[in-house]
Design a binder for these strands. Structure first.
Ligand SMILES: [Zn+2]
Ligand SMILES: [Zn+2]
Ligand SMILES: [Zn+2]
Ligand SMILES: [Zn+2]
Lengths: 155, 155
DNA sequence: GACCATAATGATACTCCGTCTCGGAGATTA
DNA sequence: TAATCTCCGAGACGGAGTATCATTATGGTC
């Protein structure tokens, strides 16, 4: 049950954009051997419906019919499969958002909570070199940038 | 009570280096209006005695005679006054270590837990520019770099 | 469709980390 | 000495995430 993908649907009502995203993610999970279940789809579509980085608890209350553990499990699965990425706020609160794939970092607005991907920034090289100077072989890093987005900028 | 600073101590036995560090920190706190108390000194000297980044709980068990709340309060005070900095491990575990003052980042060995300050790395500029490109005004950032230290490096 | 192995679910208990509360003990000042 | 204030410690509390485990749903096979 649940919305099945109408492959060649002529001129029916188009489903909301997010539905396509959900189908897409579910398909990728299936390829990896994970089942297509209703609670999982609910979690994924709730994730896709968010417009800003959200917390796991927010997702739980947006999905009162899905068990808390299931929401957390779904979220973890999405992170592990790179569909969702985690961002860390200045107060160390952990939030999630749909990933645009590939390694990247986020700009987070401290006022409205908006997030943008950090483009045109090649820290990796620089960090690797600096690490080497200290005798370290870099294997990873965590970077979050905070500030105010265009809309929240003032004075 | 408690070790007082022997200003001009002739040729007595030198106290452990860390004692000087403790006195120094306590003095700075006093300047800020905080009292010089025994539990506080115990916390500070336990901090100074650590050779690697440590967790709050580790500190608690290293100080069985000091209340848990007091250890946490002391730690928080030290962070707020910039005497101690916080580092975040890859699994998001929070650890602490004596600060070398000023804004800087850390290199953390994923094997032995050693930490080194990241020198000669000017990410700030780069981040600020990249943020501006996205219409953000950067106000802060969090960066941790993970890898293997020289001793733990292998093939 | 029926059957089955097993992946997934959800209620709930639990752990972990850190903060709050509050009565009491010292310091500090008047 | 009395009043005030910081600090202390025991323990209650709260939020976030995980573990447990009986039950259910899924997807492949016949
Ligand atoms: Zn990066
Ligand atoms: Zn904003
Ligand atoms: Zn920096
Ligand atoms: Zn190491």
């Amino acid at each position: 049950m649940v919305v099945t993908t109408p492959k060649h649907s002529g001129h029916e009502h188009p489903r909301p954009r997010s539905a396509a995203v959900v189908d897409d993610i579910v398909a990728q999970l299936c390829d990896l051997g994970y089942r297509d279940t209703e609670p999982r789809r609910l979690v994924i579509s709730a994730v896709a419906a968010q417009s800003r980085p959200f917390t796991a608890e927010e997702l739980c209350s947006a999905l009162p019919c899905v068990g808390r553990a299931t929401v957390y499990r779904g979220l973890r699965l999405l992170v592990e499969t790179d569909q969702v990425c985690r961002v860390l706020l200045e107060d160390r609160e952990l939030r999630y958002q749909l990933s645009h794939q590939g390694h990247h970092h986020h700009l987070l607005c401290a006022v409205c909570g908006a997030s943008a991907d950090l483009e045109g920034c090649d820290v990796e090289e620089m960090l690797r070199d600096a690490a080497a100077t200290a005798g370290f072989k870099m294997s990873g890093h965590w970077l979050e940038v905070y500030g105010r987005c265009g809309e929240c900028a003032e004075d």
